Structure formats: C-alpha cells, structure tokens
Simulated assay, not measured.
Amino acid sequence: MSSDFGLDPRRVDPEYDRHGGFPVFEAADPGPGFGRFLTAMRRAQDLAVSADPDPDTWNDAADRVEELVALLEPFQAAEGVGPSNRVPSLPGAGSLLMPPWTVTKFEADGVELQVTFSRYHVGGNSAVHGGVLPLLFDSMFGMVIHATGRPISRTAFLHVDYRRVTPIDTVLTARGWLREAEDRKAWVNAELLDADGNVLAESNGLMIRLLPGQP
C-alpha cells in the first residue's frame, strides 16, 4: 500500500482543477457581519424547531424571514463564489449545512475537530439525530483527503457504528485519519468522542480520486 503524504495534489493529478468544473474553493473574507449572520441563523434554526409561540407570533416571524429572503435574493451567487463553506475561521467553515465545528488539528497524520450539536440537530429525546453524524464524518473524510495532499476525491461508501447516544450542548471531539491508500483509493477512519474519551460513534469509508472530466 502507498500514501501520497506531502505531495502537491497537482503533481499526482494534473487535472486537479478541471474535474467537470469542480469548483476551486479559496478562503473568503466577507467581513464580521457574515459571522454575526451565521450565529443568528444557527440560533434561529434552534428556535425554529423548539419555539411554540402563538399564531400571531408565527405570522410575524414569517414576515421577517420573508423580508430577509427579499434582502439576500438579489445577491445569490454560484457555488464557490459566496462565502459559505469558505471561511475557515468560522464554525463549520461558515456553512449552515455543517454542524458548527472548529479545526484543532489539520495534519497529514490526522484531522481533529471540536463540535457542539444543538437543539436543531435533535432526532428525539435530546439525542443528536443519527443522520447528522454521517454528515459530520463525510465532511471529515474530505478534510483528511486534503490534509494528506491527495487529489480531489468523492465518497464511495461510508459506514457508521453508533456506540452511545450523542448529546447536544456539550463540546465533543471528532478525529479522522487515513488508514491506507492505493492508487485512486483511500480508506479513511473517524471517531466521535465525549469529554471523558468515550466513543460515541465511529466511521470508516472509501474515498475515490476523480478521473479527468469526472464531476
């Protein structure tokens, strides 16, 4: 088995920038207002699934959200142009799709995140929805690929074992690493742990390097 640690992915794959128009994500600097916006939107997501006001308040809230949509709609941009998912200093890199994680390690031998789930992520009984964890692990697999210097890859499969209930409103640690690699294939592992080091869930998957022209 071989690994391409430390290599510029363009040396391994000259078509790195041209996989079916796969966007090249460069860091964005949208200003402090974007961070404030994300914080408010995350809280709004929590309240959207937990608030129980009177009907008039729901109508008032809908009016305000529609005003926000009208404000932002003229500025809708293509993938890779807007700041979402392009601000590494913000939780989840500035993407509301992602759980609000922050990177604490990004090295060839592994990636580590701190993540806190909230009411928005609950599936039932104050536990994180089981479908949210594959999203976290899949994102981590992509980070591992980048950290090892391997070219753009897509997930071929992802398996999750749920060991314990994942709680909300507490800081958790996610770790991911490249187990082995051969040609276009990279096998990746990850785990999610609580503050006491208990494994809440673990995952393994296969990432496949894209061929020229593959989106």
Score class of each variant (00 low, 15 high):
Gly142Glu: 06
Ser139Glu: 15
His146Asn: 15
Met98Glu: 10
Met140Ala: 07
Leu47Phe: 03
Arg119Pro: 05
Thr102His: 10
Val69Met: 11
Val132Leu: 11
Phe137Met: 14
Phe75Ala: 14
Gln45Asp: 13
Gln76Lys: 15
Met41Asn: 05
Ala78Thr: 12
His146Gln: 12
Glu79Cys: 07
Leu135Ile: 15
Leu47Gln: 11
Phe141Met: 12
Val69Asn: 06
Arg42Leu: 01
Leu72Ala: 09
Met143His: 10
Asp60Asn: 09
Leu71Thr: 14
Pro88Val: 07
Gly82Gln: 05
Glu112Gly: 01
Leu47Asp: 10
Glu73Val: 05
Val49Arg: 13
Val87Phe: 02
Pro100Asp: 03
Glu67Met: 13
Gly123Val: 03
Pro55Asp: 13
Asn85Ser: 08
Leu133Gln: 03
Pro100Val: 01
Arg119Ala: 15
Ala40His: 08
Ser139Pro: 00
Thr57Ala: 05
Gly94Leu: 01
Ala127Ile: 08
Val144Leu: 01
Met98Arg: 13
Leu136Pro: 03
Asp56His: 06
Met41Val: 11
Val111Tyr: 12
Trp101Pro: 03
Asp56Trp: 11
Asp63Ser: 13
Ser118Ala: 11
Phe137Thr: 04
Leu133Asn: 02
Glu67Pro: 00
Gly92Ala: 04
Asp46Tyr: 08
Ala93Asn: 13
Pro53Leu: 09
Gln114Asn: 12
Lys105Trp: 01
Asn125His: 14
Val81Arg: 12
Phe141Gln: 03
Arg64His: 15
Pro100Gly: 06
Ala127Lys: 10
Val81Asn: 04
Pro83His: 10
Pro99Tyr: 07
Asn85Trp: 04
Tyr120Asp: 07
Val69His: 09
Val132Trp: 03
Gly123His: 08
Glu107Asn: 04
Ala40Thr: 08
His121Leu: 14
Leu47Thr: 13
Gly124Ser: 12
Ala77Phe: 05
Leu72Val: 15
